[in-house]
Nucleic acid binder design. Sequence first.
DNA 1: AACTACTCCTGGAGGC
DNA 2: TGCCTCCAGGAGTAGT
Length: 315
Amino acid sequence: MPELPEVETIRRQLLPTLIDRTIVAAELRLPKLMTKWGGLGPEAFAGHRIEGIGRRAKILRFRLSDGLTLLVHLKLSGQLVHRAASGETLAAGGHPMPAFDAPLPHKSTHLILGLDDRSRLFFTDVRQFGRVALMPDEAAEGFLAAMKHGPEPLGGELDLATFRARLARRPKPPIKTLLLDQGFVVGLGNIYANEALGEAGIAPARSAGTLDDAEVERLDQAARATLTEWTERLRRECGDGFPERVTAFREGMAVHGRFGQPCPACGSAVQRIRYADNETNYCARCQTGGRLLADRALSRLLRVDWPRSIDELER
DNA sequence: AACTACTCCTGGAGGC
DNA sequence: TGCCTCCAGGAGTAGT
């Protein structure tokens, strides 16, 4: 569930409470958490100070003293909670289950880092998809480079020319599939890809190559704007005391998770299709790009549930 | 080479 | 109440 806005928000939450803390102990309760990505074992944590927290794509990158890097990917259900010795939650983010104020460690807490002020950082992940790796800096750089991530949408790395050029290289796949591909552009997951397509008014099943110049420009704008706006919104929503809202907050979405509810723009029911292994919500009236028939033919192949109202829309 | 389908997991929701 | 099935959805990998 955590996509770029959530991961970026967690990074900002954790930074002030973890910076300059030294790790004094580590307890790894689920070995595969650290073996899937390779790197050093949990015994290598002790004695290293946290000097910074960065981010590449959806991966948190902790810079540790003595040339070590800690990589953390929350995947679908990972969560990080920083608790003071008193039990007070100092910072938290990621999947909101278990609740951020629940007793820790939880049965799904897989890694606990003890810090020099007796606070602790808990990594909890009920579905065990998350990954943690501790590596020398150069190894971490190589590891990240091998992932061949696309450009970062926040911070100016992605612009219209770049977006257009990358799109032109892959004209065939459905545009939604491209947006989800971290090699195309990083940061978008199912939620924000749905929202970006909604904002741009482009049907998710269209082949990328069918987008005209204006649509490409709208999508480029929408992708960056969606991620930027939600990052800011989460930051504001978090404020100083509501970290549980980092991922729980979903009010204000136009199409994602709103199957059957009225599209905020035109009022027709938000539709649902399934492909690329996930659920896509979109408004069939606003997001056609004038290619409704082509979309419908494609979507039959993709086991789409078309609404009865679609025939009315075509008239 | 370029896509798509499957896989990793478990808790919660909904049907009966 | 409880059992079953489905669903959530990042991303690596296997298959076509």
